[in-house]
Design a protein around this nucleic acid. Structure first.
Lengths: 217, 217
DNA sequence: CACAAACCGATCCTTTCGGATAGCTCTTAC
DNA sequence: GTAAGAGCTATCCGAAAGGATCGGTTTGTG
């Protein structure tokens, strides 16, 4: 029940960045239960997160992906240039493989769902603080699955987004300054990568995977 | 800064139902700041919510839409048969008009986003407890917009879901035991209602509106 | 260097879409 | 009772879609 003996001499200084007041309060409450964990600051958006990070130099940053002004991905990318390397845990309610993949490639060390149990939160923080990467089992499984699936290239994503607006191949060709034949080729590859039989199913899969700008969620 | 004088003699007994521990803790912490609000129980899923509601008879139930075992909509529908009529506030992170609409038609009296400020949460609880319906301004605006847009009929939704699997009109016809011509007609109506120019765009719009079973979010 | 992958372009051919238009039941609401 | 809307069926027809197959450049990696 009690925590491990990992460098328990110093307390771990934590910065929370989340635009939901309820979640911030919940995290503070949960983390306050462990005496080696100390919340030293809270940010309401991405900009504030960067500012406070530089001011406070926390040991661990817990970050939501969807935030106003500057989203989680950007914050991770921006902070990764700092020395020493920040230890960042992404805490979000999106179980989408795409978000997970992007977060990790951007440099995040941990990924937690908002449905996580308190103990899981504590342990992840301690592991990341200790320099390890930490992914809950269920999340790790998704990552493996995600990595197995081929990713769309930038160009293919552009085509996909135009498809989402109902554009025809010819229209997409004009928009992207390429031949309609090329568009058809891209579309074909998209189908294969998404394992879809037509553009309609491709759209359904893409939006559910988070490949399309879905705005609110 | 202080609250209104609305029947402040008794404290308002509140039941929380949310599968996210972090959110539950956050709510408890926030509600504890107001002495007229008292959390009398917490449920982790839909079934527990119904059970605890009957045991505790809270004044107000705060409910998440997405929960294991029994989702929020079902809980609202089920509890509405109770006497006296339960006062239910839906608290979710989905700003989707569809969720909002379904919740209200099911009988919920309030709708809050997880991004809501503490004061907004307090006020909504008090208003709903007083028998009023309460919708934040931004949410209400969305509702108006949603209501203005035509809804899809059951049959049209069935067609739409088959489209999501990439089925052709002919295939959908076979599946639903109707003529391909009929399917085409339904599809045409769907386009008009969703304001889409083709099935691809229709899919994009439908998934973003939550018309398609999106499972995890 | 060689190989893979992204990106670009093309042809042929069949199937499917989707618009315009029309008529038929059945149920619900005014 | 009649008007409205859901659900069903139908024909014509041009425009897309998409499968199969081919070949080209450029860039980056082993």
């Amino acid at each position: 029940m009690s925590s491990s003996a990992l460098s328990s001499q110093k307390e771990i200084r934590i910065l929370i960045a989340d635009d939901h007041p309820v979640v911030r309060e919940g995290l503070v409450t949960i983390l306050a239960l462990q005496k080696d964990l100390k919340v030293v600051g809270q940010a309401r958006d991405g900009e504030e997160a960067c500012l406070l990070y530089d001011q406070l130099s926390p040991d661990v940053l817990i970050l939501d992906l969807r935030m106003p002004k500057k989203d989680g991905q950007q914050v991770v990318s921006e902070l990764m240039s700092r020395e020493p390397r920040p230890r960042i845990i992404v805490l979000t309610n999106s179980a989408k493989a795409e978000d997970l993949r992007r977060s990790l490639t951007a440099g995040a060390k941990g990924y937690l769902l908002k449905g996580a149990e308190p103990r899981q939160v504590w342990e992840t923080i301690r592991e990341v603080f200790a320099g390890k990467s930490s992914l809950p089992h269920d999340i790790a499984a998704q990552l493996a699955e995600s990595m197995a699936q081929p990713q769309l290239s930038q160009r293919e994503l552009q085509v996909l987004r135009q498809m989402a607006f109902g554009k025809s191949n010819k229209e997409i060709a004009q928009i992207l300054y390429i031949s309609e034949h090329t568009v058809k080729n891209h579309v074909k590859v998209i189908f294969k990568k998404l394992n879809a039989i037509g553009r309609t199913e491709a759209m359904a899969i893409a939006t559910q995977r988070g490949l399309i700008d879905s705005g609110a969620c």
